[in-house]
Design a binder for these strands. Structure first.
Lengths: 199, 199
DNA sequence: CATGATGGAGAGTGGCACTATCCGATGTCA
DNA sequence: TGACATCGGATAGTGCCACTCTCCATCATG
């Protein structure tokens, strides 16, 4: 398939595909002449991946580049899969000191984690920002959210166990980490409406 | 407190505060002369709110304007609180048709919701994007995520019951809807690490 | 009275994800 | 065979957005 057909299949303008090619996000097609190249289903999937990452996950071009690199990299052990995935979509909110409350939270839950990892910092920052903005958020509520987050994480990890090989495992973890955030947010909104109607 | 002190307290440049004033996101201080105005703790809270919305919730200036409007608006009945909050931070992902799978999902869960609401569309779009990008996501997994989302929503709604008056209820719902998304994402990442270490 | 902060308005900046233009080479159809 | 569209490749431009800066007359303060 030619670039114009790839554009049609994916509903992405040719110019944008050229941009992705230039940025190294989309692998070149097989050149059939100096001005022609042939693209296949792998390219279609890649373009869909890029659109999902940019449009829904909001990771930007840089983040997408890291995701693509992670997918093409030999994975390493299953234990460090998550590390790769989490580094691929880095935490936001700066590198503030982890608060005592957050430390206690994970301790009370019995979680064993890197105490000063980026997501512990991100958690501190987001909780602090929500409180500073005037949201009354009790520690008890946070614990309940954490329980729900743990349930989600269990499913996340289950997903990786089904993977047939290392490549599939990487894809599942990396994509699951980035692409399911918006799914979970949408589910939360729909669930809010359902619970609200029940009461 | 003068604008420069407000800037110091909130760690936001004076120029940015002026920008917020111009955009109507920050209420004017009490003018003590033609070139002086006095700001107070309400202004500090408002600036923290704006920063949290823009930096952590990523709702942008327009979204922040809607949040501020919702906070200042008389609330209405408790039943429509959620509607206000959800309209304040609108769904992304276009207005695609809601898929049969998503319809069945909420039906199987026994949820009563607007069948073609914006978040049902958003859910369809994000699930579809994740699949198109190559993520193998079974319906069964989705159901498990939905259960967790429901748990979160229960806590969300509990939060509103504690509110003393209508104004506090609006603040809780609107801020909770927007500002807790990043908290939940961070919790998910930390929980992933904890579960991963256990296995 | 000198200095510097202030409010107010407009214009400028930087980052980002495209998007358009240009080019020469090459398919393709009449 | 010749007209014409399309292609890859490179450069430059666009639109959006959240600031950020400049300017200035006015005023507060030492």
């Amino acid at each position: 398939m030619r670039i114009s057909q790839l554009a049609e299949r994916t509903d992405v303008p040719v110019h944008t595909l050229k941009y992705y090619l230039r940025e190294g996000l989309l692998m070149p097609g097989v050149a059939t002449s100096r001005t022609r190249a042939e693209y296949d289903e792998d390219h279609v999937r890649r373009v869909h991946l890029l659109r999902a990452l940019v449009e829904h996950a909001g990771v930007g071009i840089d983040g997408a580049r890291r995701v693509v690199a992670a997918l093409e990299d030999p994975p390493g052990t299953r234990a460090e899969l998550l590390g790769v995935a989490q580094r691929t979509v880095p935490a936001t909110g700066g590198d503030a000191e982890v608060s005592d409350e957050v430390r206690e939270l994970v301790a009370d839950l019995g979680w064993t984690v890197e105490p000063d990892g980026p997501w512990m910092r991100s958690l501190t920052a987001t909780v602090g920002a929500a409180r500073a903005a005037g949201l009354h958020l009790e520690h008890r509520r946070l614990v309940e959210y954490a329980h729900a987050a743990r349930d989600v994480a269990e499913v996340d990890l289950d997903l990786t166990e089904d993977a047939e090989d290392a490549a599939a495992a990487v894809r599942t973890v990396v994509l699951g980490t980035a692409l399911l955030d918006p799914v979970l947010i949408a589910l939360r909104r729909v669930a809010q409406e359902a619970v609200s109607r029940e009461r």
